Amino acid sequence: MADHGDHDAVRRSYDTVAGEYATRLHAELDAKPLDRALLSSLAERAPRGAPIADLGCGPGHVAAHLAGHGARAVGVDLSAGMLAEGRRRYPQVEFRQGDLLALPAEDGEFGAAVALYTIIHLAPGELLPAFHEAHRVLRPAGLLLVSFHIGTETRHLDEWWGHDVNLDFRFLPVQEVTALLEQAGFTLEMRLERAPVPAEAQTHRAYVLAHRA
Rank of each mutant, 00 (worst) to 15 (best):
L145Y: 02
V177A: 04
I120Y: 03
E126A: 14
P173Q: 08
E153I: 01
I119R: 04
R139I: 00
L116N: 13
R136P: 07
L101R: 00
V146W: 03
A123N: 11
Q183C: 06
D158S: 15
P104D: 02
S147D: 05
H156M: 12
H163S: 15
E133D: 13
L127T: 05
V177M: 06
L172H: 15
F131C: 01
R139Y: 01
H121Y: 06
L157R: 11
L138G: 00
L144R: 07
F131W: 05
V174Q: 09
E182C: 13
P173L: 08
A184I: 03
L100Y: 00
E176S: 12
F131E: 02
A141W: 08
G185C: 09
G125E: 09
A123G: 14
F148M: 09
V146E: 09
L157A: 08
P129V: 13
G162N: 10
L145R: 03
L172C: 05
F148G: 10
T154A: 11
A130K: 01
A123Q: 14
P129M: 11
V146R: 03
A130S: 15
L128S: 01
G162T: 07
E182Y: 04
A115F: 08
L103W: 08
A102E: 11
T152N: 12
D107G: 01
E133H: 06
F169C: 11
E153F: 00
P140H: 12
V174K: 13
V177C: 06
H163L: 08
L180E: 08
F131L: 03
G185H: 12
D158V: 12
L122W: 10
S147A: 15
A179V: 03
E182M: 10
A141N: 12
H132K: 14
E159N: 11
L101S: 08
F169V: 14
A179G: 08
L181D: 02
A113Y: 00
G111F: 05
H163G: 07
A184R: 01
V137D: 00
G185T: 09
I119F: 11
